[in-house]
């Protein structure tokens, strides 16, 4: 296969830390090498498709709206009432075809750019753009939200301490520039990281 060129390939190498002196308050990294499959169902096949999705990810059950679940083979995000996103390593086999009456799968691996935001000031940085309550009690690890970032619809979730953003690929560089500019006040390090299943998932 050819080399993948992600949306931020040309943007995330600042080299040194930038902005406020001292330890960086924010780390911004593009996560690469993942596959993203949308699994959609119909109202009457919600349980059936959820179970199938959970089986693929090897997690106990498919997550409820606004939640994610991690398993040994991937992570499931409930992004809409009838839709999950399955995030796995890039080279996994496509999931088995579903009968149209059961549901629909769709590859969105290149449609979203994944940005991980970490550090002491991560939630503050995001709140410069996102009108969401990100306090730990309101948005604990495992939470998923669809929200707006500078007019653009994005998906946000929290895994452990990090916030994860799935940005539409075409908008990713523009939104990344805003994040990097605003993060200067906290001190920022940028980079790229290859996708790995998060620790603590049910292996």
């Amino acid at each position: 296969m050819a080399d993948q060129v992600t949306a931020l390939r040309a943007y995330h190498d600042l080299g040194e830390k930038a902005g406020r002196p001292g330890p960086a308050g924010v780390t911004l990294r593009e996560v690469s090498g993942f596959s993203l499959t949308q699994i959609a169902c119909w109202p009457e096949t919600l349980t059936e498709v959820g179970a199938m999705a959970a089986q693929v990810a090897e997690c106990t059950e498919a997550p409820a709206p606004g939640q994610l679940a991690s398993g040994a083979q991937g992570m499931l995000l409930r992004v809409e009432p009838l839709k999950w996103w399955l995030i796995r390593e890039a080279d996994r086999q496509p999931i088995a075809d579903m009968a149209a009456e059961v549901g629909a799968a769709l590859d969105l691996s290149s449609a979203r750019t994944w940005v991980r935001v970490e550090g002491e000031d991560a939630s503050m940085l995001l709140n410069h753009f996102l009108p969401l309550d990100l306090r730990p009690q309101a948005f604990p690890p495992g939470s998923v939200a669809s929200t707006a970032f500078h007019h653009v619809g994005i998906t946000l979730w929290r895994s452990g301490e990090a916030f994860e953003l799935a940005l539409p690929r075409s908008f990713a560089a523009s939104l990344w520039e805003l994040l990097v500019d605003s993060a200067q006040q906290y001190g920022v390090v940028t980079g790229e990281v290859a996708y790995e299943l998060e620790e603590g998932s049910e292996k």
Binding site: E101, L106, S110, A111, R112, P168, R169
Partner: peptide, 10 residues
């Protein structure tokens, strides 16, 4: 029974 999804960016 139809799902529509923007795949412009895909």
């Amino acid at each position: 029974k139809v799902h529509v999804t923007s795949v412009t960016d895909q």
